[in-house]
Simulated assay, not measured.
Amino acid sequence: MTNRQRYDWETIRAEYEAGSSMGRLSEKHGVDKAAISRRAKKEAWTQDVVGAVDRVVDAKVNGIVNTADPEKKAAAIRAAADRKVAVINRHREEWERHHELIVEAVTNKDFDTAKLAKITAETLKIRQEAERKAWGIRDVDAQPDGGALTVRILRVSGE
């Protein structure tokens, strides 16, 4: 085997995370045990099956079947991102239409349209939250504390 030979690191990692020892992996795949150890440390491999299953599920859901081929992987990632972008854009359009409904209700002082706007907002919120969860879409600006506001009052000495 040459130094330039490509190893199937995805398979090696999956087998390690499923419980195989580094020694067994070295024998099976012809990779130096130290190389496996370095890679495992660098990529934080664990023998936690839940993490391995989650990675494989995510790859399959997003169409990333052959992750050893960088071009196929990049294309699958772009396609998965495009699908999520379409969902996010649709959500934004729905809120824009909802905004127009509110403007109409306020402008015309129309109580029934205002009630419809309230019901529509609640429905959109519930459906979109569920849809974002199903698509694995996270709000990048979401705060880990759930959006709690922390206020710190600073006192200047001498006051």
Score class of each variant (00 low, 15 high):
residue 4 R to P: 04
residue 5 Q to F: 14
residue 5 Q to H: 15
residue 6 R to G: 08
residue 6 R to K: 15
residue 6 R to E: 15
residue 7 Y to V: 02
residue 8 D to M: 02
residue 10 E to C: 03
residue 11 T to L: 11
residue 12 I to R: 01
residue 15 E to L: 04
residue 16 Y to A: 02
residue 17 E to G: 04
residue 18 A to F: 11
residue 19 G to A: 09
residue 20 S to I: 03
residue 21 S to Q: 10
residue 21 S to D: 12
residue 23 G to L: 07
residue 23 G to F: 06
residue 25 L to Y: 02
residue 26 S to E: 08
residue 27 E to D: 14
residue 27 E to W: 09
residue 30 G to I: 07
residue 32 D to K: 14
residue 32 D to E: 11
residue 33 K to M: 08
residue 35 A to L: 08
residue 36 I to Y: 06
residue 36 I to L: 06
residue 37 S to K: 12
residue 40 A to G: 15
residue 40 A to R: 08
residue 41 K to I: 07
residue 41 K to C: 04
residue 42 K to I: 02
residue 42 K to V: 04
residue 43 E to Y: 14
residue 44 A to F: 06
residue 44 A to N: 15
residue 44 A to M: 11
residue 46 T to Q: 08
residue 46 T to A: 04
residue 47 Q to L: 03
residue 47 Q to D: 11
residue 48 D to Q: 13
residue 48 D to V: 13
residue 49 V to L: 09
residue 49 V to S: 07
residue 50 V to Y: 12
residue 54 D to T: 09
residue 55 R to N: 09
residue 56 V to G: 00
residue 56 V to C: 01
residue 57 V to N: 11
residue 58 D to T: 08
residue 58 D to S: 10
residue 61 V to E: 07
residue 64 I to S: 00
residue 65 V to D: 07
residue 69 D to T: 01
residue 69 D to A: 01
residue 72 K to M: 06
residue 72 K to A: 08
residue 75 A to H: 03
residue 76 A to G: 11
residue 76 A to I: 00
residue 78 R to C: 01
residue 78 R to N: 07
residue 78 R to I: 01
residue 78 R to S: 05
residue 79 A to G: 02
residue 79 A to E: 11
residue 79 A to F: 01
residue 81 A to R: 05
residue 82 D to V: 00
residue 82 D to M: 03
residue 83 R to K: 15
residue 83 R to T: 02
residue 84 K to E: 00
residue 84 K to C: 00
residue 85 V to N: 02
residue 86 A to G: 05
residue 86 A to S: 09
residue 86 A to F: 03
residue 86 A to D: 08
residue 87 V to I: 12
residue 88 I to D: 00
residue 88 I to N: 01
residue 90 R to Q: 12
residue 90 R to G: 10
residue 91 H to R: 03
residue 91 H to E: 11
residue 92 R to Y: 13
residue 93 E to Y: 11
residue 97 R to A: 12
residue 98 H to D: 04
residue 99 H to D: 09
residue 101 L to Q: 14
residue 102 I to F: 06
residue 103 V to W: 07
residue 104 E to D: 15
residue 105 A to R: 03
residue 105 A to Y: 05
residue 107 T to P: 01
residue 108 N to G: 05
residue 110 D to P: 00
residue 110 D to H: 10
residue 110 D to A: 09
residue 110 D to E: 10
residue 112 D to T: 13
residue 117 A to V: 04
residue 117 A to R: 02
residue 117 A to Q: 03
residue 118 K to P: 00
residue 119 I to Y: 12
residue 120 T to E: 13
residue 120 T to A: 12
residue 120 T to R: 13
residue 121 A to D: 07
residue 122 E to M: 06
residue 123 T to L: 05
residue 125 K to C: 04
residue 125 K to G: 06
residue 126 I to A: 13
residue 127 R to H: 15
residue 127 R to A: 13
residue 127 R to S: 14
residue 128 Q to K: 06
residue 128 Q to C: 02
residue 129 E to A: 11
residue 130 A to E: 15
residue 131 E to K: 09
residue 132 R to D: 13
residue 133 K to L: 11
residue 136 G to V: 02
residue 138 R to K: 15
residue 140 V to A: 14
residue 141 D to N: 15
residue 144 P to V: 07
residue 145 D to E: 14
residue 147 G to L: 03
residue 149 L to A: 12
residue 150 T to K: 14
residue 154 L to A: 06
residue 158 G to D: 14
residue 159 E to P: 00
